[in-house]
Computed example of a mutant assay.
Amino acid sequence: MSVLVGLIVMLGMLVVVPMGLRLTGAPELDRMRRLWPLFAVPGAVALWLPRGGPAAVLAACYALGAVLLALHAPPRLLRNLAASRASAVAPTEIALLTALVTPAIAAVALVAERSGHTLFGFGLGILALTVPHFHFAGFAAALVSGLVCRIADSAAGRFAALSVPLGTLLVLIGYFIGDRAELAGAVVLTAGMWTVALLTWRSIRGGQRDRITRLLLATSSAVLVVTMVLALSWALGEASGLPHPTLTWMAATHGLGNALGFALCSVLAWRRLRNHTDHEGRTA
């Protein structure tokens, strides 16, 4: 695993996921959020050890935490189905459920990569890039799309909250059945992320937001436009054979941009929005 990819994954493990769990507002996740460093710190250490037994064991510690997080999804889904008394689940909830599950996918890839073994026929290089992908295009993207839908409860907001999880799922399926399916997933995911960017810029960034919050939201919106173009160009190139960026270049541009410009700026902005809302509630 390269130094750049390792740093990006550390950001996801140690910062984006625990901050994101707080943003969900789900009381049942509070304990998981407090315990998260017990799993994330060993996982982060594993990134810098040579491939082998010790690195795999530490990665397995992180996988345990990610699986425990994913296990919150089924009972939450059942509660929502019972509350709605229907077979439908709100788009915001679908986005949140996706966010709860995707770190486990990343963790499984991490254990395989750190142990030095291929998984389902995927080489170590692809596994190494799968880890940040499902932290940021999985957890962060799904979480933010759900948060956006909560505020911008419109057709566009619901589209974003549904298309981001669907695109993530299609990309995962594309890993197994072919580049064209992965391209379809990239198209759906891009459409959802561009909708998130548009709604963030038009509906959430304005109002009585302070300057720093507006800057963070504006940065996350602008970065998404560029990084998802790169994602489309790579997926199109893989499916059609047209020239496209290399994986190394994608990690340095698309990956770094999504990690810092989108995910980190988004969770920081939404934390400020949440703190402002909590302060107003206590004042009232």
Rank of each mutant, 00 (worst) to 15 (best):
A107D: 06
L96W: 09
A95E: 12
L169T: 11
F120H: 13
L110M: 15
A141M: 11
H135L: 15
F134N: 08
V108M: 01
H135W: 02
A112P: 09
I177F: 15
L147D: 02
L172N: 02
I173Y: 07
G138R: 08
G157D: 04
A106Q: 06
V164M: 02
A95Y: 07
G178A: 08
G123C: 07
G121L: 04
L119A: 13
T168C: 14
H135D: 03
S115G: 15
E93H: 13
S163P: 03
I94F: 05
L96I: 08
A104F: 10
L96K: 03
G116A: 12
H133P: 01
L143V: 00
Y175R: 13
G116W: 09
S115I: 03
G167C: 03
A104Q: 10
V164W: 05
A137C: 02
A95I: 06
V144E: 03
F159N: 02
F139K: 05
P165Q: 01
A152K: 00
G123F: 01
V131E: 07
T98G: 15
S154E: 00
A156C: 07
V111R: 03
G174K: 10
L96P: 01
L166N: 01
S145D: 02
E113H: 12
S145M: 04
L172Q: 04
L170H: 09
I177K: 12
G123Q: 10
T118S: 15
F136C: 03
P91I: 03
F134S: 00
L124E: 02
Y175V: 14
A155R: 14
G178K: 12
R180M: 06
L100F: 02
V164R: 05
R158P: 08
L127D: 00
I177P: 07
L172S: 12
I173G: 11
P91C: 14
F159E: 11
A142C: 13
A161D: 13
V108C: 11
E93K: 13
E113L: 01
D153Q: 13
H117D: 09
F139S: 04
L119R: 08
G178Y: 15
A141R: 11
E113K: 00
T130S: 07
C149Y: 12
A90F: 07
G125P: 02
G157A: 07
L166Y: 00
T98S: 15
F139H: 05
S163I: 08
V111A: 03
L162C: 13
S154G: 01
G138M: 12
T92C: 05
G121S: 04
S115V: 02
G121T: 09
A88S: 13
A106G: 15
I126T: 07
P91M: 10
F136P: 02
Y175L: 15
F136G: 00
G123E: 06
A160E: 05
A128F: 00
A155K: 06
A156R: 12
E93P: 10
A112Y: 03
L110G: 01
A161I: 15
V164G: 04
V148Q: 09
R114Q: 14
G146W: 01
A156D: 08
S145I: 03
R158N: 08
G167N: 06
L97W: 01
L162S: 11
S163T: 12
T130N: 04
V89Q: 11
P103G: 11
T102E: 00
L169K: 05
I173M: 15
A112S: 14
S163K: 03
H133T: 09
F120R: 10
F176D: 00
H135M: 12
I151Q: 11
V171I: 12
A152Y: 04
L97R: 08
F136L: 12
L127E: 01
H117F: 14
F176V: 00
